[in-house]
Design a binder for these strands. Structure first.
Lengths: 236, 236
DNA sequence: CAACAGTCTACTGTTAACAATCGTACGACG
DNA sequence: CGTCGTACGATTGTTAACAGTAGACTGTTG
């Protein structure tokens, strides 16, 4: 038998509470598109459809407000956040600042075991046949990769800040529906490069690389949104 | 009479709700030192002493958890966060990343009226006789100055992130009790320099300056905490 | 006396009913 | 015709009572 005490092997699996489930449900509904920007979130309705009382619903709504998925006004209720092109600028500039700190911190602190998940995601990506890959799947892998990077930074406050941004980024990733072939190759190249730089602890270069990585993602998103705008105006 | 519609002059003054008052009370108690790190926050007790029911208390506690002033474990309750030297490293590195983005954004977007509050704080600082100035007063002015800078950045998400960090920084600012004379002069010099750089829209220089400004603040804090550590060990 | 099982208590999580507020519909008034 | 006052329905804010859990306490057993 191992000498290490049980307490260090088994960690208290944090108990889930109704609020957690409710928040997950609503978040999922927003991210899957079942709830669209501007939709009202009426506590009674949600309470009934989820079979819980309004207490947990309320808490979940306030939590989602912190995540930026929902806006809430006193005595007037909550609605799903509507994202605009200005929001994209905010989200991506903030993301850039956070990822820069994350990769620096990861370069300094990450152990081999912290980087394994990053490697795993890259392998998983390669193992998916190109024909069967969807925009949503890439978005998930992308978020997972960056999430693993933030974890590797071993920086609790940074990670919590990232958590509040994560869902909002996901919304934008899903906005785009095209999936050009060169995007898939550059996705892999960019991310494996980032991983390599962290492995080699090339802090300064890693910072610069991730800044331009996020900057590029924003630029493509911006072009895409401008394009959609044009189409929308022509159609309307 | 003015032609501009009333709606653009008068803005809905956001109604305060019990949760807001409760959160303010508890926050104030923590920042003033009446509640110390590790103290338990028992919902019933707080409810009684503030004469409200547990509902608003609960929400306030979760909000303060988001601000990092309180930690909360399911079914075990909330306690006041205990800050360590590692927390300082997290807080200041994150702060550095945020302030860098803030000053860049301010350089790009700030109007004259956004910078007036910064100027006012500097004037106020100078108007206070050196003898009557306290550590707490400087801390307040410091936070106010940086808060005004974040406002001038016109970046809602950045500001909200800063809000969650602000109280935690305040806690650290109050830890130090000495108030050397050269600190007061350098405080003024540093901050007026930052304001000047924003005015001149010297983005790159402003970024570098604020990075070293925050870095310096962290370094002094670190030395102070290490010093306290030594004293504590000798005494104990 | 160490390990264990049951009980008890203090607290948190949840619920449902009550109070206050917002937006709106509608009629009175100038 | 537009502005104001008012009553009403829908929805949020608040409360108090109920349910469930973690940790301490106690006695029991090998």
């Amino acid at each position: 038998m191992s000498k290490t005490p049980l307490s260090s092997q088994l960690q208290r699996r944090e108990r889930r509470v109704l609020t957690d489930d409710v928040a997950d449900s609503i978040r999922e509904a927003i991210l899957s598109g079942r709830l669209k920007g501007g939709d009202r979130l009426i506590e009674d309705d949600l309470a009934e459809s989820l079979s819980v009382s309004r207490g947990p619903i309320r808490q979940a709504i306030f939590r989602l407000e912190q995540e930026g998925l929902v806006v809430h006004e006193t005595h007037r209720g909550a609605t799903v956040t509507q994202v605009s092109i200005e929001d994209a600028a905010e989200i991506y500039s903030l993301r850039q600042a956070l990822e820069r700190l994350a990769i620096r911190s990861a370069c300094e602190k990450a152990q081999a075991e912290d980087l394994a998940p990053l490697e795993a995601i890259l392998l998983l990506f390669q193992s998916i046949p190109r024909a069967s890959i969807t925009r949503r799947r890439v978005a998930e892998l992308d978020i997972d990769f960056h999430d693993a990077l933030f974890r590797a930074a071993h920086h609790a406050r940074l990670y919590r800040t990232w958590e509040t941004l994560r869902s909002q980024i996901f919304v934008f990733l899903l906005l785009r529906d095209g999936l050009p072939d060169d995007y898939l190759t550059s996705w892999y190249r960019d991310h494996s490069r980032l991983l390599e730089l962290v492995r080699m602890r090339e802090t300064a270069l890693a910072e610069a690389t991730i800044e331009s990585h996020i900057g590029g993602a924003y630029k493509r998103l911006q072009e895409h949104m401008a394009q959609e705008e044009v189409l929308r105006i022509r159609a309307g």
